[in-house]
């Protein structure tokens, strides 16, 4: 298949065949991860810059591992240790990176649209969005999709319940697009103050009662609750949140037996998820982490020209 995406900014321009192709590529990479020597020379001589303006350990390490397993040259450019802290604009940073010969830039930024912006400013490099504000986190969505696909096979006609702070979640926005495109029905629940204005437009149904959202769900996706949201007064207390929306064994009863439990991490035990569920047999949380490395390897490989060679 001819791969048509130079960048990975958002999944709204991806169709089902793009997603299907990436799933299959990820599976090949996943097999590599089982070998005693994981490194392959696929991106030898390519320069990948990890440009992180927000603190992130998981996403950055996952990208870095993927880049290293593919033998790319890797530079970690963290905003606090660079001139950005002294007020360089993103435009100047972009041009500097290109002048240094970056083939790909992975960007994590607190401002919505930062990855779009970077892609507009770069003439040759590929841009991978590692999360922009509350807008999009496409690689997380793809790794979630891959995790579910690996476990459940064809996802068409399945149902996902997503519980938590959808309003501030880039993970939710990207996951809803990705799972919808693969034919998964998504139902949301959480405090109404943490829901976006128009969940229908997003492609999901809002249920006030999480038990309704979970009814018949094949996948239960829990979103991280940021403590700041409670401090901002968007809901009264973490304890009250857990009582109504926290995933414990009792709530999980409402889903289809054996439903997958997913979470983008890091988890807040006792808030959005109880320890018994997080560590239980249905939990895919660590599987997601492994999938993340394979998926990112696949993305880097195909976007940097590997698949078309």
């Amino acid at each position: 298949m001819e791969w048509r995406h130079r960048h990975v900014i958002d999944l709204d321009t991806w169709d089902r065949s793009d997603l299907q192709f990436i799933m299959e590529q990820s599976r090949s990479m996943d097999e590599l991860l089982d070998r005693p020597i994981k490194k392959v020379p696929a991106l030898r001589g390519k320069l990948v810059v990890n440009l992180f303006f927000e603190a992130s350990t998981r996403t950055r390490v996952s990208f870095e591992l993927a880049e290293k397993f593919l033998s790319a040259d890797v530079v970690n450019w963290s905003a606090s240790g660079s001139s950005t802290g002294k007020g360089e604009t993103l435009r100047d940073t972009a041009w500097t990176l290109e002048a240094m010969g970056a083939d790909a830039v992975v960007i994590r930024h607190g401002a919505v649209g930062a990855a779009d912006y970077l892609a507009r400013k770069l003439r040759k490099s590929s841009v991978f969005n590692g999360g922009d504000g509350a807008h999009a986190h496409p690689t997380q969505a793809l790794l979630d999709l891959y995790t579910a696909w690996k476990k459940l096979g064809d996802l068409d006609g399945m149902k996902m319940a997503m519980i938590g702070d959808v309003l501030h979640s880039r993970v939710a926005r990207s996951d809803i697009i990705a799972f919808n495109r693969m034919g998964v029905k998504v139902e949301l629940s959480g405090p109404a103050t943490l829901m976006p204005r128009d969940t229908h437009a997003l492609g999901a149904e809002f249920r006030e009662d999480p038990r309704d959202a979970l009814k018949g769900a094949d996948i239960v996706y829990l979103l991280r609750i940021q403590r700041e949201r409670q401090e901002e007064g968007m809901f009264p207390s973490l304890d009250e949140y857990h009582q109504f929306f926290g995933a414990d064994d009792e709530l999980l009863e409402f889903a289809r037996p054996g439903a997958l439990v997913m979470h983008p991490g890091p988890i807040n035990r006792g808030v959005e998820i109880s320890s018994t569920v997080a560590d239980g047999a249905q939990s895919m949380i660590l599987g997601q982490v492994r999938s993340g490395v394979a998926l990112r390897m696949a993305l880097l490989f195909v976007c940097l020209g590997g698949a078309n060679q």
């Binding site: 919505v112 504000g133 509350a134 999009a136 501030h168 979640s169 926005r173 204005r197 437009a201 997003l202």
Partner: peptide
């Protein structure tokens, strides 16, 4: 707030 509270805030994650 950054954008209209409607389609735009919903899709972008920007404050409506």
């Amino acid at each position: 707030a950054q954008v209209n509270d409607g389609i735009c805030s919903t899709f972008s994650g920007l404050k409506g």
